[in-house]
Design a binder for these strands. Sequence first.
DNA 1: TCTATCGTTGACATCGATGTCAAGGTCCAG
DNA 2: CTGGACCTTGACATCGATGTCAACGATAGA
Lengths: 120, 120
Amino acid sequence: MRIGELARLTETAPRLLRYYEKQGLIFPRREANGYRDYDDYLVDRVLQIRGLLDAGLPTRIIKQILPCLDAPRTIHFADATPEMLDTLESETERMTRRIECLTRNRDAIQEYLSVVKELA
Amino acid sequence: MRIGELARLTETAPRLLRYYEKQGLIFPRREANGYRDYDDYLVDRVLQIRGLLDAGLPTRIIKQILPCLDAPRTIHFADATPEMLDTLESETERMTRRIECLTRNRDAIQEYLSVVKELA
DNA sequence: TCTATCGTTGACATCGATGTCAAGGTCCAG
DNA sequence: CTGGACCTTGACATCGATGTCAACGATAGA
């Protein structure tokens, strides 16, 4: 599919799809006329990228994470340098801390909301 | 305490403590000489702010969230306008989506790491 | 008192994600 | 063949969080 369709399917501006490509997150093929040609699986890919971005991860890290999440699961040994494994390990720790912080605060807000509603 | 000590305790540059103040997240008193004077409880406050920022929330939202999380719990009815309750509700939904996305991807990375380690 | 260290404000720079616009090529429907 | 919709690249702008620097005042220890 072309960039416009992917943009509609993922609610992502074409500008950003090109940006994600420049950051090395997606690699569309090209039609003979130069137009980008996106495979269907890139819909999920882009949604995942948006989710991770929204969750606070920078494209630099997402780029390292994505190859590990490909389905069907292919273990990319070539990519699995010790430094990258370290990066991934410390990144999962950061993600866990984020999850805890988000959960704690979300629960506190929800409790606040429920108290306010009860008193209404 | 003064800004330098708070900076050490929270590992946050003084520049940012002033920035958070300008964004309306903290309100230190002033000494007679103009120096900012931070209460002890602001250590936790700043750590919470950093956690929320790191979790992807903008200061604009954090500013609305913080008053709901004060301990001892004081329900600020004056602040609890319907619009703000709406904001908080939709923000908790966003936080839940973030948590799910982070959890899903973290688990996938951890599984990848465990597989790679097993094969090592 | 001198000096190092810390504090103040304000301006300007940077960085990543995103918006916007210009100039031009492609494609298709009328 | 023409007009509108879509694509290309590239430049420049914006926005929030953060870094850095300048010019200056306050503090504290030798």
